[in-house]
Amino acid sequence: MADLASVAKRAGVSRATAARAFSSPELVRDQTREKVMAAARELRFRPNTVARQLRAQATRMIGVMVPSLDNPVFAEQLQAMEVAARERGYSLLVTTSEYDPARESDIVESMLRQRVDGLVLTVADAEQSPLLASLRRESTPCLLVYNPAGTSGFPSVGVDNRAASEAATRHLIDLGHTRIGMVAGPLLQSDRARQRFEGYCQAMQSARLTPCALVEMPRHTRAELAPLEGQLKSQQPLTALIATNDLLAISLIGELTRAGFKVPGDVSIMGFDGIALGKCLYPSLCTIEQPRAEIGREAVNALLALLEGEQHAPPLLAYTLRDGESVAPPVSSSAPCPTQRGSHHA
């Protein structure tokens, strides 16, 4: 394999000049720099940027942990982050926790050993996270994405989950729904879902309606009808359901349709996230749309501000309610959903 000395010899310059052509090209004359680059291409030489970065005590890498790449929300965030980071001379080191709080510490420890310059994390529960408690003792800058900042001590980029969920619930109430439920994945694995449930409860109580018990599914993005059967087939069945993410809402529409329910004729379905796939379905998904690309860009900008020593507190970003065919006024109006034993409260 060719080395820097071989490149210098081929270009007819000193080894120091060849090294400078890669590390500080603006300090080398154009003609000399082009000779070095041409020699490098001929010999298929690539400089060891990792070694140079380690000598400089900076890798120009950002460690990013998201729960999953199955959900387009995180994929779209990462795409925007990669573009924004590349424009600033940084690259991403991406890992997934699979919604497992026990994996988070191991993942971040691995990234710290690779000397990432900063961390952008989405954890299960920001306020109860042993990982974040340990990171407060580290010097590596850290930023949360989607997690509410709460008392974690770390800045966060995202939307107001409670307010957004209130808006989604009020939209259904304004359409005439009074028996509205909410479906989520395992609640202990998502502080975002808990805040969205609190927002739902607040909207229901403000309208003098009784919130129904949260229905937890075994997985975050896969719905099952069994936990909902009692509420869908009672004398006063639910007429609307809010899912805490779009993939769960889409799965719910599929399960309901296969079971003979009409969406939105029998049950209106509301999502949360605003992924593009929801527009392509029939019925198209009504949802709360988060500014996923803006979240990704703001995460990079906020972290780089921290790296430069600025005390940066990102503002909450704006969400929008994207209308869709999956919601409609109820066929008939009846009394509110009765309080259920074991229901959660905001």
Rank of each mutant, 00 (worst) to 15 (best):
C201A: 14
S334Y: 12
P291W: 10
S326N: 01
A184D: 00
Q290Y: 07
R10D: 09
L175S: 00
V145H: 00
E109F: 10
N245W: 12
P141M: 07
L188Y: 15
G63S: 03
R52H: 00
L172M: 15
S24G: 07
S251Q: 04
L232I: 15
R222I: 13
L277H: 11
S333R: 09
L112Y: 14
L135F: 02
L252M: 12
L304S: 09
R196N: 12
P130F: 13
D246H: 09
T339H: 09
V183H: 00
G260M: 07
Q202W: 15
Q79V: 13
L172W: 08
D100I: 04
S23M: 07
S91G: 07
E308V: 06
D3W: 08
R196G: 12
E310G: 09
A102F: 09
F45W: 13
L306R: 02
R194D: 06
N161Y: 13
P338R: 09
G260C: 03
L252Q: 06
E34K: 04
V13W: 02
E104W: 04
V50L: 12
N161C: 12
I180Y: 08
Q205V: 14
D160P: 10
R103V: 02
Y146P: 00
L187C: 02
E229S: 07
L92A: 06
G89C: 10
R322A: 13
C286I: 00
M204D: 01
S234V: 08
S97Q: 04
T49L: 05
E289P: 08
D246P: 11
L144K: 03
T151A: 11
G176Y: 12
M182Y: 10
Q205R: 12
S23F: 10
V331Q: 06
F74V: 01
D117L: 05
V73C: 03
R208S: 14
Q31Y: 15
R162E: 14
